[in-house]
Computed example of a mutant assay.
Amino acid sequence: MNLALKQYSAVDGQNFEDIETSIVVVKDQLDLLAKLFHEFDASGYFSGVGIKQLECLNNGAEYVQLTKNIETRFMNIVKRLKAAYNICCGSETFTDIQKDCIHFYLAIRSIVFKLTKGNAPDTSQMNAKVRELIKEALKSDGVEEIFKLGEDTQKEIDIFDEAYLAKIEKIKLPNTKIKLLKQLLLKAIDELKKTNKIQGIDFSEKFKSIVDKYNERKESDILQSNVLEDFTNEIIDLYHELRKEKNTFQDLGIDLEEKAFYDILKAIAHKYDFNYPRE
């Protein structure tokens, strides 16, 4: 019995130390995030209601996407914050303001995560109100349909339908728009690869070139309003180019399989520098 009590006390003591350590980590991450957001007006979330809070979350997601470096830093800090908070969320140490800040940052991370990965991380630690705000934030102009692409229930959707592009073009937040365009184009390229691997690889390389330039953007570049617009136009142009390529087999009077073989021959000819009859 004494041995059992001793072991229980040791475990209980370790749990207490883990909680205390986690509390310190949470507060440290909150401090880092406060510094990161020192130029961002979050009053709409903390003082507003409904649409104001929703707009603030969307603007917050846009704010952390200012550069790839800021986005990566934010996502990593909030990841550490969430991991620590999962351990000590039951503690009474945190004030209501601190809890609101935690939910605020977790909500923004969920939105950015969704824009980047296509699925939102677990939101179980957030209160019901914040979860609902995230849900609404991810419904921007019906773009939630974009996120559903690829699901079994959405196989009948034509991702080359101009309607999807039109929905994204309505979005006013430039970095959010670019993220969604990237997802749409990536899905379109994946579809092309299923029938024409050569062209799929070619478009993947073009897409990567655009994404690399976008990820290398600097804060000084963003001050020029045309920079993000240029990225947007490049993605849209590539999307239209891909749509056109998808139907070129009809212009050649051949089927999809023959077009794929035709492109393989062209690629080999280019690689080994020889000519072949085009008739």
Rank of each mutant, 00 (worst) to 15 (best):
A4L: 14
K6R: 13
Y8M: 14
S9V: 10
A10I: 12
D12K: 15
D12H: 14
G13A: 13
N15Q: 13
E20D: 11
E20Q: 14
T21G: 00
T21A: 11
S22G: 01
V26M: 00
K27W: 06
D28F: 11
Q29R: 14
A34P: 01
L36T: 10
H38G: 00
D41H: 02
A42V: 01
G44K: 06
Y45T: 02
Y45F: 15
F46H: 09
F46A: 09
S47I: 01
G48A: 02
L57S: 01
A61D: 02
A61E: 00
L66W: 08
T67S: 13
T67E: 08
T67V: 09
K68W: 12
N69W: 06
I70Q: 15
E71L: 10
F74P: 03
F74E: 07
M75K: 11
M75N: 12
N76F: 15
R80N: 15
L81S: 05
K82A: 10
A83Y: 09
Y85S: 05
N86C: 06
I87C: 04
K99C: 09
D100G: 12
C101D: 11
H103W: 02
I108V: 14
I108D: 00
S110G: 12
F113Y: 13
L115R: 05
K117D: 09
T123P: 00
Q125M: 13
N127W: 02
V130D: 08
V130Y: 07
V130W: 02
E132Q: 12
I134A: 03
K135W: 12
L138H: 03
S140I: 13
V143Q: 03
V143W: 00
K148R: 13
K148Y: 05
K148M: 09
G150V: 07
I157M: 09
D161M: 05
E162F: 08
Y164P: 01
A166P: 01
E169F: 02
I171T: 08
I171M: 10
I171N: 07
L173A: 07
P174N: 07
K177N: 02
K179V: 00
K182G: 04
A188F: 00
I189A: 06
E191K: 13
K194P: 04
T195H: 11
N196S: 06
N196W: 07
I198G: 02
G200L: 09
G200C: 10
D202F: 11
K206T: 04
F207Q: 01
K208W: 03
I210P: 03
V211R: 06
Y214G: 00
E216V: 01
E216C: 05
K218A: 04
K218W: 06
E219M: 07
D221P: 06
I222Y: 01
V227E: 07
V227Y: 07
D230L: 12
I235V: 15
I235W: 01
L238W: 03
L238Q: 14
Y239T: 04
Y239H: 10
L242Q: 06
R243S: 12
K244P: 00
K244F: 13
K246Q: 13
F249D: 11
Q250L: 15
L252E: 10
G253L: 10
G253Y: 07
G253V: 09
L256E: 15
E257R: 13
A260I: 02
D263L: 02
D263K: 12
I264Y: 08
I264G: 00
A269D: 01
A269C: 07
A269F: 01
F274R: 05
F274T: 04
N275H: 05
Y276G: 00
Y276L: 12
